[in-house]
Design a protein around this nucleic acid. Sequence first.
RNA 1: GCCCGGGUGGCGGAAUCGGUAGACGCUAGAGACUUAAAAUCUCUUGGGAGUAAUCCCGUGCGGGUUCGAGUCCCGCCCCGGGCACCA
Length: 772
Amino acid sequence: AFGIHSENYAIKLGINPAELIPRNIVNFRRQLRNIGGMFDWRHELSTTDPAYYKWTQWLFLQLLKAGKAYKKAAAVNWCPKDQTVLANEQVIDGRCERCGTTVEQRTLEQWFFRITEYADRLLANLDDKSKMDWSESTTLAQRNWLGRSEGAEIVFGGEVVGAHRGAPSADIRVFTTRPDTVFGATFMVLAPEHPLVDAFTTLDRKGDVDAYRRSVASKDLVSRKVGEREKTGVFTGGHALNPASGKPVPVWIADYVLMEYGTGAIMAVPGHDERDFDFARKFGLSVAQVVCHPERSEGAEAPLEAAYVDNHQGVLVNSGQFDGLTVPDAKRAITTWLAERGAGKAVVTYRLHDWCISRQRYWGPPIPIIYCGEHGAVPVPEKDLPVILPLIDDFKPDDTGVSPLARHESWYHVPCPVCGKQGRRETDVSDTFLDSAWYYLRYPSTEFDDRPFDAERTKKWLPVATYIGGNEHAVLHLLYSRFISMVLHDLGLIHFDEPFKRFRAHGHIVKDGAKMSKSRGNVVVPDEFISRWGADTFRIYLMFLGPFQEGGDFRDEGVSGPRRFLDKVWNLVGDTIRDDKGGHSRTPDSRLPTPDSGSPTPDSRLPTPNPRLPTPDSRLVEMKRHQTVRKVTEGLEELRYNTSIAALMEFVNTIRAENAATSDVVEDLIVMLAPFAPHFAEENWERLGHDGSIFDSPWPTWDERLTVEDTVEIAVQVSGKTRSRVTVARDADQGVVVEAAQRDAAVRRFTEGKEVRKVVYVPNRLLNLVVG
RNA sequence: GCCCGGGUGGCGGAAUCGGUAGACGCUAGAGACUUAAAAUCUCUUGGGAGUAAUCCCGUGCGGGUUCGAGUCCCGCCCCGGGCACCA
């Protein structure tokens, strides 16, 4: 309920979100009830409720206390349309995840959470099956996002820097995943923002260097990151010493090196990196080959036409004592060698950045900080929480880079909690993903107002057994929630460090050839469907559309199938009731014993059906029943709703075809239908004479032996082509089947006059006669 | 560029420890019922040939392994998604 999504909608309608959101909640709640979602409404919560965000603010304070929250001025993603900063996770291809506007770079004072400290753990737990059973696509997205790289940090000494402004010697540390190529590092490149740029810049190069840095600073993040890849850069005039070759190499600056990754500096190996090769070619820098194709290791003298990037089988050349080693061996050997000489060490780098949680917006929980001229950023004492978000009229954001709350002096002028002198509240609010990063902890404990989550409740209910959501949250909500869990676990506040044991990503519904979404305007409003077809028809249709993880194609006509199915079931129940009225000794309030407990067969208790119709094949129906129970039971567990419903439809078709609507069969059917069509099932449960809720009745069980037939149809192939089918007793011997097959005319036609060279027999499935 | 997921009838989709491809549903066609329509019921519905029994072809494309491939292997194409001047 908090956040940009809601706030933008409110701005569009010109209504204060504080008024609009509660109205929408009423509507959502109604729709969720209508569709038969079974929730314990006593545990409903709203992130916009002070009783909730009090604890969101408390959470911020806990992270601050633990040193996991800090403030810094940083270049951040600024969305000029939404007029707020965005987390890296909210920027897709250089555009705002919400509105699609190209994101700009701004330098602002922001609050960050140290999620990077947890990078290795966030990665390692993904492989821990005892903690996490997640959709593969989701863990993969997280892996990519965390972006672990193994490599080495190598120190290039600055002793030999040329005549510049008398700067002291300065070492340049670089990160590389290819320490094996260090002998081929013929120049270095620093990010333009790198703090050592000035140290290496000679007087005669200063003008060019400064001009280049200014031009880069004015570029926005997008054109720098996803714009054209034409290399630009300037020479600083300085040199550093390659610790492997001992040779001095020129130091350049270029914007293809990013300050925020690795050390903000690289050793450039043009012979074995495409970007470095492009750069060297453009600026006429020397290219050295130090890795060679394993089969052509003697022919390395010709100049390289392109970077040779083979990372696996390549063999080292021109690398002193390391010549002849393969790339993987050389990585280890050279890293060790450099480490011994104090010029490097093995390191692991992550792509993940710290989580920026400041938002210059109105609709969120105020960050509980008071700035004091003397004491700096002072946390609001916990006893003073919540810091209430005031109701204001001018809640629209602007381009000033500060929140609308900064226009309200009466709100932000407060005394410093330490000295009592006038202070100023933090006017930014926190990212809405912080609200959702801990709500699973609040649900079981909604009625406690003196603690965010009750220890006993948490112990009983959490971590979450199964969590279902969209994959669009793979690197947002799901990553943040995991981080918050780890922090709270390490603070000793909860007993687990992974919040969601099992996660399954649902698919997306496609309508008119596009993913159903509000922005595309192809959304189906459930209300209309529910009033026309009924909630249960709608539920079954949605579940029947396609595999849960893949979504499906929503077509209005398709809904008639599930509706017809429910109508048929309704009539089956009607048949059962009518049959009972025909003088049968069924006790309406107790469930009939299941067949495996030795009860009489259904047929003996029911009237002979209409003589026009075939006699019910009770064995067939029994078999189908056991098969269906198995299929639906297993299908529910695996979220295979579409095939579970198909199995129920088949069961109904069998019951109808066999005219076998006996009460025990129909009752099993209704019970199995209950999770899919709860209202319908309850109603029919009552029609069948029961008082209580169907959800209090036991789930049917199946007997594996009764799911199979006594006779089986075996496909008969001749040389791999199916030519006929024979019906034999279950588990028949090969000889029996071969004999039956050889009597078959169609088989004969293909085996006549030919020698059967080989016989392949798969019991109960197939016989293959291979003729020569 | 790298890494995942997926390409099956007119449509949504079944079937993956290699073993009868197309379950279930939709659409369409024919018939029954009806004064008529709707609803319901019955039958047909991958393509081709044949009166028929039956045969040939068929799971994105090209090869391969196998008695047998939608399923496994190699090489491509297309669609969806993740990452991306990340060193």
